[in-house]
Amino acid sequence: MRLDRIDPRAVASVVALAVVIGLAVPVVGAPSVPQNGSADTIVGAAGSSPAEGSPLVVVPTPVPVPSSFEPVPSAGTTGSDGATTDPGSPTPQPTRLGGSSSSASTAGSGGRPAETAPPKPLFAQPAPVVTATSTPSCPAMISGTTPGAPSRTSPLGVAGTTSADLQSFAQQYNAIRVANCLPPVPFANIRYDSCMEDRLFWMAEDPSTDPSSAWGHIGSERSDGVPSVGCDGNLAGGTENTGGIVAQKWWDSTGHRTSLYKPTYTGSTANVCILFAMTHGGVPNEPYSFTRAAARWVTC
């Protein structure tokens, strides 16, 4: 081969190629050692162990980056939870709500902090729902009619109980009970009573001009000495009274309320009867508008 026939450009290309190969593979069979201390892996071109004469490629092992860490206060300082640690003592690990502290939450493999979930906020759990205790509703008003009264007249002309007297009393009696959260008494159980009416007649026929003569419970006396008859009860008297008015008068009097309305009674009113009677006028000169009334609670 004649040297004067060699193309200088071809020589330059060969030299350049040799320089590139020398930079890519400085030492054959001697793998480079990473200087950053990480655990890099040395593999061959096909992913197998390096063989003599094969080029080597250095593939760094990726280092996981923790997504979050438990907040750990430094020794001798106040942490985010307000607790202060003593210098020289082990740093306390915060406890997450719903879990417990462990060494695994602060150290993982290779001395790196382990990956943990972000701490849950305090009071994360919902407060219990307080259900208010319902208040029992009061009984409702009922409707109905009473059995009625005979409208008797005494031997000396005193007028007795009318059906209107009885119905007026029954309506107001139950209205008062319901307004005070007491169960009403069935209208059929609010009844005229002839025995109490007999005693009211006895009082109205006293010949004295004093309306209060003979007035009162069993044991009172008439001005003419006639012995008492009939049955006792809660009493009410006066001018322009109706059945409804005397029902209110009895409620307004503590003693009569206890006797006739029985506010503390908790049983059924199905077997409760309220007896009632009223007279109009008296001798010798009491007008019809002057009334005497009696009522009592019985079992029927």
Rank of each mutant, 00 (worst) to 15 (best):
8 P>Q: 06
9 R>T: 14
17 L>P: 10
25 V>Y: 10
28 V>N: 14
37 G>K: 03
37 G>H: 05
40 D>S: 14
45 A>S: 15
46 A>H: 09
50 P>H: 04
50 P>R: 00
58 V>H: 14
68 S>R: 05
69 F>V: 11
72 V>A: 12
78 T>M: 13
80 S>M: 07
81 D>F: 09
85 T>W: 08
91 T>E: 12
91 T>P: 10
92 P>M: 05
94 P>Q: 11
95 T>A: 14
96 R>T: 11
99 G>E: 13
103 S>M: 13
106 T>Q: 12
107 A>M: 11
108 G>W: 00
109 S>M: 05
119 P>V: 06
126 P>I: 02
126 P>T: 02
127 A>P: 11
134 S>W: 02
147 P>K: 00
148 G>A: 06
151 S>M: 04
154 S>Q: 05
154 S>R: 03
159 A>Y: 06
168 S>D: 10
168 S>I: 02
171 Q>D: 14
172 Q>N: 12
174 N>W: 02
179 A>D: 11
179 A>K: 13
182 L>E: 08
186 P>N: 04
187 F>C: 05
187 F>A: 07
189 N>T: 03
193 D>H: 06
193 D>Q: 04
194 S>Y: 06
206 D>R: 02
209 T>K: 13
214 A>E: 00
216 G>F: 01
227 P>Y: 03
238 G>F: 03
239 T>P: 08
240 E>H: 14
241 N>Q: 15
242 T>H: 06
242 T>Y: 02
243 G>A: 04
250 W>G: 10
253 S>Q: 01
255 G>N: 09
257 R>M: 07
257 R>H: 05
263 P>A: 07
263 P>D: 02
265 Y>H: 09
270 A>D: 09
273 C>S: 13
286 E>L: 15
286 E>N: 10
289 S>P: 03
289 S>Q: 04
290 F>L: 09
